[in-house]
Every structure is written in structure tokens, then in C-alpha cells.
Amino acid sequence: MSAQLTLGPVQYNWAPEDWRDFYFKVADETPVETVFIGEVICSKRAPLYDNQLPDVVERLHDAGKHVIFSTLSEVTTDIDRRLVKRIAQSEGFPIEANDVSALQQMAAGPHHIGPLMNCYNEEALEVYAANGAKSICLNPEMPRVGIAALAEAAERHGVELEVQVYGRMSLALSARCYHARAHNRTKDSCLFVCDEDPDGMRLDTLEGDQFLTVNGIQTQSHSVLNLIDCLDDLQSIGINRFRISPQSIGTFTAIQAFDDVLNDRISPSEALKKMRDDSVDAPFSNGFYHQRPGYEWHDKVPAE
């Protein structure tokens, strides 16, 4: 099985035109084969993209991309539930489920399990496989040893595993919007203030250390996950799907760099250098993979 790059859904609140242009560029200029699309964080944001969606999907399809619709991750209110239902029941579109409620409402058939759902072990994988999952993208906190054990089970059940290799990591979800809270608002009265931060809002410790990133109800890492020098290792344990999670800066450079390394055109350290020159202002990290604190970087090359 040959390695392939996938592009996870944009998780931030981007201006609809920027969102559209980003995907046009993905369609026109990148080697990613599979593109996950759709609002996974906040049901209030979803309608913002409705006008752009048909053009974006058409452009991606015309470019030969496999387009998969990702569902909302935290499903509480009736608006959340309606959004999940609408996507889960749209006919003819492949779905990536990010919450069990999507599984419950989907038509029987092939689908994908997103990284915001839990699949930590062989038994869980078996449940998803029996339900029709074709691929499962793992939570970035999974260590190498767990990924390797799960990969063996995946092969037995005919499921492909996917691992996020680039982009800020989702660390927590909540029912409360922390973007709104920072602006003395509530989720219902937010006025879409998250649109000020195309890569999330930085949260620093009181000692001034850059720590976390707030994206609405989601808390992400400040550091940017980068497993460029683990690609060989990942392939050796049976992983062939590598997910890039979009940032507003550096995503196309990262896609190119990962593609170059996967095709032996440049070395991981050359690729890393290119990505450092074009990235959000944050260090790279790969601690989780090495079963260490997630923010850490383990390599011969320094993170910054």
C-alpha cells in the first residue's frame, strides 16, 4: 500500500472567501489525495460556508480529490444535532464521524472515523470496523507502541489507520466557548469573535510562557505537531495515511515538504528547515509519539 497524504478539516473560523480560496489552492496545487471538509468545532459557524461549499466541492472533485465530510465533534444542542443529522444523512457523500451520534444516524455503508472520536484499542477498532469504517484517524496522544499494536489489528479487519503528522493538536473539547469567555461573552452571544484568530487564540501562562491555543470550544496545543522524521518509522509499523491539519500559514509548504520526504526527494531535516521558515509562530513538537509530554520535541535537530 502506498503512502498518501490527507488534509484534515479546517478547524478555525476563517472568512468564507479565505476558506474557499484555501480549498481552491488545495485542489489546484497540492498532491493530497483525500480532503476532509466541514465544520467540526461549532455548529454556529457551519452556515457561514454554505454558499462556498458547492464550488469548493466541485473544484476538489474536478482535481481528482476524494472529498469526505467531517461531522461536528461536540454535540449537545438541537442546532448541533440538526447539523450532524443533515451531514450524516446526505446521500452520496462519504462521512467522517467525529462523534458517536453521527454513527447512529448514518446510512449503513462505508465511512471514516475521525480523530476526535476515541479509538485506543483493538476492541474499539473492531466495533468501528464491523460498523463499516474504512479508515480511522487516531487521537494524536497515541504513543508509537499503541499505534503499532493497533495497526496489526487494523490489518486483520481491513481498516486503514491514519495518523496526524502536522498541525496543532486538539487537546480538549468543551460545551463552553472559551473564545467568547475571553471577550466577556457567552457561546450564544459570541458575535463570532473567533474569526479574529485564524490559527486560534494564544493562551499564555502567567509567567509568559506560550502554552495553549483556544479555538472556540476546543483547546489545542500551542506547539505544532510535526512527525516529518517519523514517516519511515510509521510506515514500518503499517501506517500509510498521513494527515496534515490546516493552519492559515505554512500548510502548503508542509504538504509539499511531507510529499517530498515520502517520495525521497529531500531529507526530513531539509523538510523541517523549509517548514520552520514558513509556519505559525510556534515550536514543533512530537512528544506524544515518543510517549513523552506532548509539547516536547525529540530529535537530533532542535525544535526552534
Binding site: M169, L171, L173, S174, R176, P293, Y295
Partner: peptide
């Protein structure tokens, strides 16, 4: 708990010990 239960790896991000696992 402020974070959705079963979906929080903040502790792991800082300590290397996972709440879920």
C-alpha cells in the same frame, strides 16, 4: 470538569501521563 469527559489530553500534553489511557 470543564472539558468534555474522555476527550481531554491536556494532562498528557504537559506530563506525559494520559487521563484517558
Amino acid at each position: 470538569g470543564m472539558m468534555a469527559e474522555g476527550r481531554c489530553s491536556l494532562t498528557n500534553y504537559v506530563t506525559g501521563i494520559s487521563t484517558n489511557m
